[in-house]
Design a protein around this nucleic acid. Structure first.
Lengths: 214, 214
DNA sequence: GACTGGGTGTTACCGCAAGTAACATGCACG
DNA sequence: CGTGCATGTTACTTGCGGTAACACCCAGTC
């Protein structure tokens, strides 16, 4: 009855679970986010019900899979974010880390950005606003915390930090997504451009001469 | 054979098409993005095959529906963006317009942000980077164009404007999505915070005293 | 050695949604 | 009248998420 007790069976079950996750990983890497449970089970050399015993439903498998990658990516980002360097350097390193990750494994990244989706069994709660990928939310909260810790924003700073955290993450995500599709420039250029944006260059630059209106 | 010729039948087909779109709109507004073709057909008082005759497949209906809303939203945004006012005022008006729209009709907004998704019939092209909602892409391009027209960014400005367009749109989207879910502050505060971010307040604010490291 | 319990595995099925024949009907035009 | 054509239907196929029922293996135990 001791909860910390780990029997052989429990350990082997954990190992099995990890194997299944790795098989799922391979399928997602190959087929993208619409990988079916059947395909994943086949890749793991088993059949569907076992997957369901381990993960409950597709959302459960999704969550477990997403957690692995999200944790890994967040670790990298934290490292870049907490480096002992100037703020601009840290920001650029963080952007570059994220972009390098999505560039290296676009299928995984694509998978992570999609929530549970349809799932026909009865109307699930369906809270509005829940549709953004958990990865984005977690990154936003993480960044918010770092900002709040390290930047002196005065009163109301906590809320400001959270807005900024989610905003910056969204900027990074959307720009990265677009860049991945069109590849209009090098990664370094993209990083520079985004950092410039965050550094207020939009506000600092003058109007174009001869523009419309006056 | 004249392509510009419009027979009575063609006009009535167009009207029918518009009626179907409005029915679909109603269902999406009620059921969210997982609205089934059956439900839409029932709402329109007809049956599935007619929908398929008009729109090809679910993606076609999705695209037609999305286009209507996207066009409408983009018109509002253009109005805010092109107003004869200071840049900061225009930016705040644009942010507020977007946020007001998603606040007013969250279901529609949620629908717009989701691409075709799975669609099991054979692997469609499946280009990486195609997964971001068309609305986001279009808003990004639109904003990029406005930035390029009105801000003097020097050489390489076109590319910079595009990066910024997509980045700013992503910031707006992610922050809006998070805000819609948690409602941590008023819309006006959110607008102010985001505009502050774009105005470089992150770079201008000093480090926190007594922070970690040194 | 027989009995029992839990984890692993299977086949076969349900429900549901997308998409598709194949058939029926109303209506213009020669 | 018949020929074309758009509009509408019912009834089906396919594929996926998810589940029920049954079979096996291997511990521990009397």
């Amino acid at each position: 009855m001791d909860t910390t007790q780990r029997t052989d069976q429990q350990r082997s079950a954990d190992r099995r679970r990890r194997e299944l996750l790795e098989a799922a990983d391979r399928v997602v890497l190959r087929d993208g986010p619409q990988a079916s449970m059947n395909a994943i089970a086949a890749e793991a050399g088993i059949t569907k019900p076992i997957l369901y015993r381990h993960f409950g439903d597709k959302g459960g498998l999704y969550a477990a899979l997403a957690k692995r990658h999200t944790d890994a990516l967040l670790d990298s980002l934290r490292a870049a974010l907490d480096a002992p360097a100037e703020r601009r350097e840290r920001v650029e390193a963080t952007l570059d880390t994220y972009l390098a990750a999505i560039e290296a494994r676009p299928q995984v990244y694509r998978f992570l950005m999609h929530p549970a989706e349809g799932s026909q069994p009865g109307d699930q709660g369906f809270d509005v606003g829940k549709h953004s990928a958990p990865l984005l939310r977690r990154m936003g909260e993480e960044l918010a915390q770092v900002i709040e810790e390290r930047v002196d924003l005065g009163p109301g700073g906590q809320q400001l930090a959270r807005v900024w955290g989610h905003g910056i993450v969204g900027m990074m995500h959307a720009a990265g997504d677009w860049w991945l599709g069109e590849r209009p420039c090098s990664r370094a250029e993209l990083v520079r451009s985004l950092a410039d944006l965050l550094w207020g260059r939009l506000a600092a630059t003058g109007d174009r001469v001869g523009g419309p209106g006056f």
